[in-house]
């Protein structure tokens, strides 16, 4: 047993972080918020980097890696708040022409919701009767779909959980950084225990979600994946809320990035297996 990242996995993670730092830094994020829409050039760059073709076999033009590597990339995407139907396009690689290379943007109906419907080139599932809603997340356009929820592909659930993990790790880091820099009463606010303990709890939730997501990626077990989603949703949503609290008034502004993490975390918590469904699945397994 060696439940730690291999050096190849670390390199892959670092490579993705570098790619995003170069192609989707904070400035790009804020620009996207002001001018919503899908950056096709970035989408193709992700395709070239193997983001979508990661799990396709090499003889089909893919990278030939597995779910553990995929979660590392999606974690980075979540950390950077990378927009777009990343999960659906990744899952469509090999099945929908051009998805693997990033030429085709694919979205997928998920129960009562579908994201990026107007921008996608290809829609999987039945989007008949879709009505737009004014999405709470400025970077995720959403449509409502009439009808009942269907079973989610476990990979979609897991990769969404990985994005939540990345967001949770990022909001923890943002909170700690602010707590070190902001001073009140003549000292960094991070020296106050009430603030310190919020940060400690954020880290604990993130690290528990991390091992749950990584282990579920290794086993591919649907119940373990459900547990990972549940814990990662909690880490992301509560992490963003606590990060907001640590930022004080600044946390309530449009200018700070905290709200973008919180809103995306809310959207993802609703997508690809809600907490209720995950809990029922996990209960049924007992």
């Amino acid at each position: 047993m060696d439940f730690q990242l291999t050096s190849e996995q670390r390199a892959l993670q670092a490579g993705m972080r570098e790619l995003l730092a170069a192609r989707f830094d904070r400035e790009a994020l804020r620009a996207a918020v002001e001018r919503p829409g899908l950056d096709r050039a970035l989408w193709r760059a992700l395709g070239e980097a193997g983001f979508f073709a990661l799990r396709l076999p090499e003889d089909e033009g893919g990278v030939g890696l597995g779910l553990p590597e995929a979660v590392l990339l999606f974690e980075e995407a979540g950390r950077a708040l990378l927009p777009g139907p990343l999960v659906a396009t990744h899952l469509a690689a090999g099945a929908v022409k051009g998805a693997a290379s990033g030429e085709t943007v694919v979205t997928r109906v998920d129960g009562g919701l579908v994201s990026w419907l107007a921008e996608a080139d290809h829609v999987q599932g039945d989007a008949a009767g879709a009505t737009p809603l004014r999405s709470v997340d400025p970077l995720t356009p959403l449509h409502r779909i009439p009808g009942t929820r269907t079973a989610e592909p476990p990979e979609a659930v897991l990769l969404t959980a990985a994005e939540q993990l990345g967001s949770a790790a990022r909001t923890t880091q943002m909170a700690v950084q602010h707590a070190r820099e902001r001073t009140q009463f003549g000292q960094p606010v991070g020296s106050f225990q009430a603030v310190k303990h919020l940060c400690a709890d954020m880290l604990v939730r993130t690290e528990v979600a991390r091992v749950a997501v990584y282990a579920a990626a290794v086993t591919g077990d649907a119940r373990e994946i459900a547990g990972a989603k549940l814990l990662a949703d909690e880490a992301a949503v509560r992490g963003a809320r606590d990060c907001l609290q640590v930022h004080g008034g600044m946390g309530f502004t449009w200018e700070a990035d905290v709200h973008l993490h919180l809103k995306r975390a809310w959207v993802r918590a609703e997508q690809w297996q809600s907490a209720e469904r995950a809990c029922e699945l996990l209960a049924a397994a007992l």
Binding site: A209, V211, A212, E224, L231, A278, C279, E280, A283, A285
Partner: peptide, 9 residues
């Protein structure tokens, strides 16, 4: 169900 996720993690 939640506790199942918790103790697995």
């Amino acid at each position: 169900g939640l506790l199942n996720a918790e103790f697995t993690a």
